[in-house]
Design a binder for these strands. Sequence first.
DNA 1: ATGACTTGGTTACCAAGA
Length: 262
Amino acid sequence: MRIATWNVNSITVRLERLLAWLERSQTDVLCLQELKCDAAAFPAEPLRAAGYEAAVHADGRWNGVAVLSRVGLTDVTRGLTGGPAFNGSAEPRAVAATCGGVRVWSVYVPNGREVGHEHFAYKLAWFSALRETVARDAAGRTPFAVLGDFNVAPTDHDVYDIARFEGATHVTEAERTALTELRGTGLTDVVPRPLKYDRPFTYWDYRQLCFPKNRGMRIDLVYGNAPFTAAVSDAYVDREERKGKGASDHAPVVVDLALEAD
DNA sequence: ATGACTTGGTTACCAAGA
């Protein structure tokens, strides 16, 4: 089974590239983030025509997540248990489904904006709710993973130049502690291999030629439980999808699983 | 140079992203 996660930065703008990538990559299960559309505007029909069912959690111009699957899709859960709100809104940032015997969460962790900002406290509270929501499945015997845009670089090595992130979000002790505590439920970081250069960055800013200069960050992560990681046969960042006009600023992270059912 | 893209909505600018 091939499973992947991709922050598409608007599924509306990215639809043609998404359909082409699904065909090219032969992905079975895809976790999507930053749909930037209303649930009613989600392109369910063209995806269904391509063979994919979808579990969608979206409500407008920001955020929005989904799970696509061509190997079955059941037991959909929208939102975290006890998930925090921002400015009175419980934003659509998490959706779960069971696909082909694997339970997955597609998550879009709040950005945090600035250290000390109200949004930063929201980010940490969101991580806490995520940890509590997934704890039971993480410790279970069914292959399980949380995939998505975590908006945290796990180590200094996961950004192109840590000196440029002095005082910035995404690299603070508090955010990394939240990741450590999430792993404490029984999850392991499935680190993908890069297809070029030495580090598996997944995001490159649109500005200042960051992608050609490889000024990237590894913030799109796959956290799997023991039955999941035991089945991993390969994992890589598809940086080819970051190339060219009309690319998302994130590249897909692809994981291959050798499950008994395969 | 408190910028430098890209997106969608309140559009000929703004907020948000990271």
